[in-house]
Amino acid sequence: MNDKFRTPLKDAIGLGSAKQGLHHFVVQRITAVALLLLVPWFVWTVLRLLHLDAAGAHALVAQPCNAVLLFAFVVAVFWHAQLGLQVVIEDYVHARGMLFVLQLAVKFLCFLGGAACALAILKIALGR
C-alpha cells in the first residue's frame, strides 16, 4: 500500500554520486597527464633493460632519477587503474553485494600492487 505514495526519489536518496564524481574525474585526468609523460620514459627504460643482466638492471633502476620516476609511474599507474576499473565495475555490475565486494577488491589489489612496487623500488634504490 505504501508503494503508492513512494516516488523514485526515495530509492535515489543516499545512493547518489553527489559531490564525489568531480573529484574522480579530476584525479583520473591528473594521473592521465602524468602517465602521458611517464609512459614514453617507462618504455624507453624497459628497452634499455633488454641488453642488461640482473646486476645491470638493478643498477639502472637504482639510479636516483630512475628510481624516483619509476616510483611516480607506479603511483600514477595504480591510481589511474583503480579509478578506471571502478567505473567499469559501476557500469556493468548492478547487484549490490557483488558491486561492494568487487569495488573493495579492486581498491585493495591496486593498493597492494602499488605498495609492493614502491617497497621493491625502495629496496633496489637503497640496498647494497
Binding site: 643482466d53 638492471a57 607506479v74 587503474a81 612496487c117 617497497l119 621493491a120 633496489i124
Partner: peptide, 29 residues
C-alpha cells in the same frame, strides 16, 4: 576500455618484475 582492463592485468607483471629485481639475480633471470 578493453586495453585499460588489459593494462590493469598487466600491472601484475610490473609487480612481479620489480619484486624479482629486488629479490636477487636468480628471481630476475
Amino acid at each position: 576500455r578493453a586495453t585499460g582492463i588489459a593494462l590493469a592485468a598487466g600491472t601484475i607483471l610490473l609487480v612481479v618484475a620489480l619484486l624479482a629485481l629486488a629479490a636477487g639475480p636468480e628471481a630476475w633471470d
